[in-house]
Design a protein around this nucleic acid. Structure first.
Length: 554
RNA sequence: GCCCCCGUAGCUCAGCAGGAUAGAGCAACGGAUUCCUAAUCCGUAGGUCAGGCGUUCGAAUCGCCUCGGGGGCACCA
């Protein structure tokens, strides 16, 4: 939409140049935006102000020159005004917007799509929680944000894939196996002291019980070396299945589950180390192997192979990211908990050591979630096993409210998640407010159907009865949707969608209370229904990006 | 000590690729239901944008410093 405006301005600029009224040594970039206040016009541009210096003219004079060369009536342009320090405010005719509303409604579920992504291949990796226990609420935020971002980026025209990296190697996995084995022995009556640094959650006991149900006392007398691998595998698979289920219940699915172990099996890890060593980015010291990450803005060098010969987590991560790029992804997005932020410089260093621009790699840090219950903090500790799992939370407040809550705030900001508020059906929990608008609209359509109102097809509908200021303002808000999606994709910020929808829907609720949609005036009724259809499509598409349902009845 | 995020109305937060009078919800106060869903709407009140300096025609927005809150600085993952 703004494109059309930009063209109008650019056209006027070149005419002014031809007429010798402006120098235009270099064509200025025309930025079209929305004025703060709708009364000032539909679009505004500050070109005159940005040109002031190079033209050595007062912004207002430049604005005046430009406005003289703008042809009124062209492209639905109604009027041009100069305002403030030199803004050009453009007003469009209502036909301009009505026509575009029809385009939007025609697009149905596709409305909101754009091609800013230009089909660029992106991989977004998120959650990637270790398969050592069920997902907790912090993972939930990452899951909601990652999943919504994926949907948004797709809508904005990126070729996007999602991936979950499974850390199925390393010491944590051994501890997991050992924890399960010990619980198994306990359940079979052995008296032992359960170590503090092992996984103490109840779920470990459940898995141990399964082993008993399945294999009885088979592992009771066997030595540890034989048992731990078995229990490790059992526990891992079990927990991973639980994670998948929790995510599916939360409407989050992944295109690919990538196993860390696979990087060892196909020698990718060794290969990556050798590759880096050839390039001179790796050296030996104190019996360990180091990556010279300090050469790329990291604080210090990092160990990739320990004295013991074990590879660090970081080491397989190097191979993993090399693998991602080799699969053809042009941009990598990783979501991590904010507590991992120290990890960012070293990963950027790796990318650079491998010869890539660090800008192809973007780590989004998701800030902490504090779980509250009626204003009181709920304590979370994985170790003690007393923590709120994602599935508990979703079970209590529902998927829609949980997702909305996770997505309503910028992921840069700490989030207070109050279970009581999330459950309440008040405007403080706006998910219901938005869903209610959708349900209301659907209810109106049901009413129309009962009255036997028949709808003309898209092209022949007459929208000219939509003359109310409020109606036009709703239409403009609807038409802003694709741009909101675009900006949200570029900034990687999901919360823009929820704020937009909230604003959109509150316009509708106000309109609804002041105007009747269904009346004896048939053309007006049809036009208003059409407007509501556009609204309904926008709400549906917007909530779809957030993974939230839109009920037809509430 | 170093690094990351945050600080905007009583509360929870938007706004930040500089732009016109800083917004919303909740809470407070006052109203609206013969009529399409009151899970709604309308109105009133509420501000040193943490503080300072700087860049600019113009700063909540950009830069530097200070203060306050949270998190992180492993041959853990």
């Amino acid at each position: 939409m703004k494109r059309a405006i930009k063209e109008i301005i650019e056209c006027a600029l070149s005419k002014a140049k031809e007429a010798g009224e402006l120098e235009l040594a270099q064509a200025p970039e025309v930025i079209v935006e929305k004025p703060r206040d709708e009364k000032m016009g539909d679009f505004a541009t500050n070109v005159a102000m940005t040109m002031a210096r190079s033209e050595r003219k007062n912004p207002k004079v430049i604005a005046e020159i430009i406005s003289r060369h703008i042809e009124s009536g062209l492209n639905g342009l109604d009027s041009v005004e100069i305002a403030g320090p030199g803004f050009l405010n453009l007003k469009m005719s209502s036909n301009f917007f009505l026509g575009r509303l029809k385009d939007a409604v025609k697009q149905q579920n596709d409305f909101g799509e754009s091609n800013v992504g230009q089909g660029i291949k992106i991989l977004i990796e998120f959650v990637s929680a270790n398969p050592t226990g069920p997902l907790h609420i912090g993972h939930g935020r990452g899951a909601a944000v990652g999943d919504a971002l994926a949907r948004i980026l797709k809508k904005a025209g990126y070729d996007l894939s999602t991936e979950y990296y499974v850390n199925d190697v390393g010491n944590q996995m051994n501890i997991l196996g050992r924890s399960t084995w010990l619980r198994y022995l306990e359940l079979l009556g052995k008296d032992l002291e359960f170590p503090d640094d092992h996984y103490r959650g109840e779920y470990i006991k459940d898995i141990a019980q399964q082993a008993i149900d399945h294999s009885g006392k088979e592992y009771f007398d066997k030595p540890e070396e034989e048992c731990v691998p078995f229990f490790k595998e059992l526990a891992k698979n079990n927990i991973l299945e639980g994670i998948k289920k929790d995510l599916t219940d939360f409407r989050v699915t992944f295109d690919n589950w990538f196993s860390e172990q696979s990087l060892y099996k196909d020698n990718s890890v060794e290969g990556a180390i050798e590759w880096l060593r050839d390039k001179g980015h790796v050296y030996d010291k104190d019996g360990a192997v180091w990556l010279k990450s300090s050469a790329f803005e990291d604080d210090k060098d990092r160990v990739i192979v320990k004295q013991t010969g074990e590879k660090t987590y970081f080491c397989s991560d190097i191979a993993y990211h090399q693998n991602k790029i080799r699969r053809g992804y042009k941009k990598l997005i990783n979501l991590m908990g904010a507590d991992h932020h120290g990890y960012v410089p070293r990963m950027e260093a790796v990318l650079q050591a491998m010869g890539y621009d660090k800008n192809i790699f973007k780590i989004l840090l998701i800030q902490f979630v504090s779980l509250l219950r009626g204003g009181e903090k709920v304590s979370m500790s994985t170790r003690s096993g007393e923590f709120e799992t994602l599935s508990d939370v979703v079970g209590e407040v529902g998927v829609d409210a949980a997702r909305y809550y996770f997505l309503m705030r910028s992921s840069d900001a700490h989030l207070d998640f109050d279970l009581e508020l999330a459950k309440q059906e008040t405007p403080e929990n706006p998910v219901f407010y938005i869903q209610y608008a959708h349900a209301r609209i659907c209810s109106i359509f049901r009413g129309a159907e009962e009255k036997g109102i028949s709808f003309p097809d898209n092209d022949s509908i007459d929208l000219s009865p939509l003359v109310e200021e409020e109606e036009l303002s709703i239409i403009k808000a609807v038409l802003a949707f694709p741009e909101v999606v675009e900006k949200s994709a570029l900034a990687l910020e999901v919360h823009r969608i929820s704020h937009y929808l909230l604003d959109l829907v509150s316009r509708f609720h106000g309109y609804y209370s002041r105007h009747r949609v269904i009346s004896d005036d048939v053309p007006l009724t049809l036009a208003r229904l059409y407007l509501l259809d556009g609204l309904r499509i926008t709400i549906r598409n917007g909530f779809d990006l957030m993974g939230i349902s839109v009920p037809e009845k509430m």
